[in-house]
C-alpha cells in the first residue's frame, strides 16, 4: 500500500519528493509517529492522578482536624517545590528499589540483604520493569508533582465560592454533604478550570521527560532519527539533523497546547451554565 503510493508520487511529483516521502514513511519513522501514544497515555494518566491527588490535597488543606491540614500544606508546599525532572528520576528508582528490598528480605533473608555489596541484594529480587511499568511510574510521579499544583488551585477555587450561596443552601435545609457536593464542588469548577488548564499545559510539557525512564517516546526517537548517520546499512547518510526533528516536536507540543486551550474553553462554558459570574472571566 505504502510502496504503491510512493511509486505513484514518484511518477507524479518526481523522484526527489518521492524519495523524501519514502524516507519519512520508513519503518523507523513510523515507529516515531506511533510513539506519540506514550506521550498521550502519560499525559492523560498523569492528569487523572493529578486531579485525584489534587482533590485529596485540597480536602486535607481545609480539614478541621489540624494534623490533616499539616499534611495537606506539607504536600502542596514541599512537593510543588521539587523540580519535576528530579522527581521523575527519583521516584521510580526509589519505588523499584524499595520493592526489591522487600522481595530480597522475603526470598533471601535479612542476613543476605545486610551482607550484600551489589544491588539487588540477591538475583531473585531483581525486578525488571517493562515499558508499561515505567509508563505507570511516570504517570504516578507526574501525578504527584502536578497534584500539588492542582491541590492549590482546587483549594483556592473552593474558597472562592461565595459564602452567601452556601449559607443560603443550609438555610434551605440542605445537608452538609449536599452543600459540599451540590453547591461548593459544583460551583468550584468555574474558578478552578483556568488554573487547572495551566497545570495541564505544564503537565503536557513534562511528558517530554519520558525518555529518562527508558521509554522510547517521541523525544528519544527524534534524537535517534536526527542523529548523524555514516553507515549505509543504517539507512540514509546524513549529518546531524536533530534540530529538524526537535523542531517538529516543538510544533507538535504547540498544537497540543492549542487544542487543549480550545477544549478548556468549551469546558468553562459548560461549567458556567446557570451561574451569575460577575467578575469572573469567561475565557480561559
Amino acid at each position: 500500500m505504502l510502496e504503491s503510493l510512493i511509486t505513484w508520487v514518484n511518477a507524479w511529483l518526481g523522484e526527489d519528493v518521492g524519495a523524501k516521502l519514502a524516507y519519512i514513511t520508513n519503518g523507523k519513522h513510523l515507529l516515531w509517529y506511533a510513539s506519540v501514544r506514550f506521550t498521550l497515555i502519560a499525559a492523560f494518566g498523569s492528569a487523572a492522578f493529578a486531579v485525584f491527588f489534587g482533590l485529596i490535597g485540597a480536602a486535607l488543606k481545609q480539614a478541621t482536624f489540624t494534623p490533616f491540614r499539616w499534611i495537606g500544606n506539607f504536600y502542596t508546599t514541599i512537593v510543588r517545590g521539587v523540580p519535576d525532572l528530579l522527581f521523575i528520576l527519583f521516584f521510580p528508582l526509589a519505588f523499584e528499589q524499595t520493592v526489591e528490598y522487600f522481595i530480597a528480605r522475603v526470598k533471601c533473608g535479612a542476613d543476605v540483604v545486610a551482607a550484600a555489596t551489589t544491588w539487588p541484594p540477591c538475583p531473585e529480587a531483581q525486578w525488571l520493569l517493562s515499558t508499561g511499568d515505567y509508563l505507570f511510574m511516570a504517570c504516578l510521579s507526574l501525578g504527584i508533582v502536578y497534584g500539588a499544583f492542582a491541590a492549590n488551585v482546587i483549594h483556592g477555587a473552593m474558597q472562592a465560592v461565595s459564602k452567601g450561596q452556601l449559607e443560603a443552601a443550609s438555610a434551605y435545609g440542605f445537608s452538609r454533604r449536599q452543600v459540599f457536593w451540590q453547591f461548593k464542588v459544583r460551583q468550584m469548577w468555574v474558578y478552578a478550570l483556568p488554573g487547572l488548564s495551566n497545570v495541564w499545559i505544564l503537565l503536557i510539557k513534562a511528558t517530554s521527560f519520558l525518555s529518562l525512564l527508558q521509554i522510547a517516546d517521541i523525544v528519544t526517537w527524534a534524537g535517534r532519527l536526527g542523529g548523524a548517520n555514516y553507515f549505509p546499512r543504517m539507512g540514509l547518510i546524513h549529518p546531524d539533523w536533530r534540530w529538524k526533528y526537535y523542531l517538529v516536536l516543538f510544533i507538535f507540543f504547540i498544537l497540543l497546547t492549542m487544542i487543549s486551550e480550545r477544549f478548556f474553553e468549551v469546558l468553562q462554558t459548560r461549567a458556567s451554565r446557570g451561574m451569575s459570574l460577575a467578575g469572573v472571566k469567561s475565557d480561559v
Partner: peptide, 11 residues
C-alpha cells in the same frame, strides 16, 4: 554498525 544497529524498519 555493522555489528549491531537499528535498520530502516526500526528493527
Amino acid at each position: 554498525a555493522p555489528y549491531n544497529y537499528v535498520n530502516d524498519n526500526g528493527e
